[in-house]
């Protein structure tokens, strides 16, 4: 069965390693914070200017001076720090942040990502996404494998205006975990529980390399 949003977040959380500073985008990526494995020490960075971001505040404790990049009220954990926007993107460009997780409308087989604009329809802007994808060493995209009409969002080439070139290293969808390699395109690493390799092949428009053995994801 295909994963729901929480399942995607749970699988991505398995990639977290102790000592990492992590930036989570809006949407499914935000849910990753709910599934940090036991014994893993990480800090969340939000690009509007906080390291050491904590969970949502208890009702009545919310502050207009303490929000994340999604403009949601948050808390600051012990050891947190606040800083200005130039300092925030300094740490992003200089690769002090080890992992970026963000959503996408399309990803191409060479690692291009599109997630900021649908010409004539949605023009919200890129926010910090272009800075993040241009600099981050380790980018995981969290997304649905297909759009609502059933068309693949994992393409040979992005049809929408791109956010960054050849930057995505890993994609986790409701159907599969895939790495991206410049020569082999999407490489199928894991299947969602009960989802067949054939179903994933059918749902992927871009080049998909299928190894001999593709295990099922292990989610508790």
């Amino acid at each position: 069965m295909a994963l729901d949003k929480n399942g995607i977040a749970q699988r991505i959380a398995q990639e977290l390693q102790s000592g990492w500073y992590v930036n989570l985008g809006i949407g499914i990526p935000t849910l990753v914070a709910n599934y940090i494995p036991e014994g893993i020490d990480i800090e969340f960075q939000s690009e509007n200017g906080i390291l050491g971001m904590g969970p949502f505040p208890f009702e009545g404790d919310e502050s207009p001076d303490l929000i994340n990049a999604g403009k949601q009220t948050i808390t600051a954990l012990d050891g947190a720090s606040f800083f200005d926007s130039a300092t925030s993107f300094a740490m992003i460009r200089a690769q002090k942040v080890q992992l970026t997780v963000l959503g996408a409308m399309e990803v191409s087989e060479n690692g291009d990502i599109a997630n900021w604009k649908i010409p004539g329809k949605m023009v919200k802007g890129m926010g910090g996404a272009m800075d993040l994808v241009a600099s981050a060493e380790n980018i995981i995209v969290a997304m649905q494998h297909c759009n609502r009409k059933g068309a693949s969002k994992l393409l040979k080439a992005c049809s929408l205006p791109i956010t960054g070139v050849q930057c995505v290293k890993k994609v986790v969808t409701d159907l599969a975990v895939m790495d991206i390699d410049p020569d082999q395109g999407f490489i199928l690493r894991e299947r969602a529980p009960g989802v067949s390799v054939e179903a994933i092949v059918a749902a992927t428009e871009g080049q998909l390399t299928v190894p001999e053995h593709v295990p099922e994801m292990q989610l508790d």
Partner: peptide, 25 residues
């Protein structure tokens, strides 16, 4: 891009006329 926006402000205030960034390439 947000980081470029921030740095274009910082540069203006720091006497730096221009800079190179990977964002948006």
């Amino acid at each position: 891009p947000q980081g470029t926006l921030a740095e274009r402000c910082r540069a203006a205030g720091a006497g730096i006329p221009a800079f190179f960034t990977p964002a948006g390439y």
